[in-house]
């Protein structure tokens, strides 16, 4: 299946990918990271694990994309993944900001009606 003998960098990258996947799994179990936010990370680590195991994949991708310098396609995949992640965070932050604003608005109106009631009762 794999025409190349396993190289030291492969061992390092496979170990690192597995380590990160296990880390994510532990974090999900301990409820330190929510599943919805972990999915993208898991996907990206899985892709890297696969790329580390099947070394020929990078060559295939490079030739498909017409990239002559193979490591460049690795960087391309890496940068694309990071873009995706940061974009995802922007979405999450925007959503949170919206919710926080809603909370602040509701809080201020509630406070007002509370102090109004106190005034009326005293």
């Amino acid at each position: 299946m794999n025409p190349y003998p396993i190289s030291p960098i492969q061992i390092v990258s496979i170990t690192f990918s597995i380590f990160l996947l296990v880390l994510i799994a532990i974090l999900i179990r301990k409820k330190k990271i929510r599943e919805e936010y972990a999915i993208l990370w898991i996907l990206i680590f899985l892709i890297f694990l696969l790329l580390s195991i099947f070394r020929g994949a990078i060559d295939t991708i490079s030739s498909l994309l017409g990239i002559q310098y193979q490591p460049a396609s690795l960087f391309l995949i890496l940068i694309a993944s990071l873009f995706l992640l940061t974009f995802h965070f922007s979405l999450v932050i925007s959503d949170m900001k919206k919710k926080i604003n809603h909370l602040a608005m509701t809080l201020s109106i509630l406070e007002e009606s509370l102090s109004e009631e106190e005034k009326n009762s005293s």
């Binding site: 604003n101 602040a104 608005m105 809080l107 201020s108 109106i109 406070e111 007002e112 109004e116």
Partner: peptide, 10 residues
């Protein structure tokens, strides 16, 4: 007057 106090600058 009525006053609403936002907990942070919005």
């Amino acid at each position: 007057i009525k006053a609403l106090h936002l907990p942070f600058n919005m």
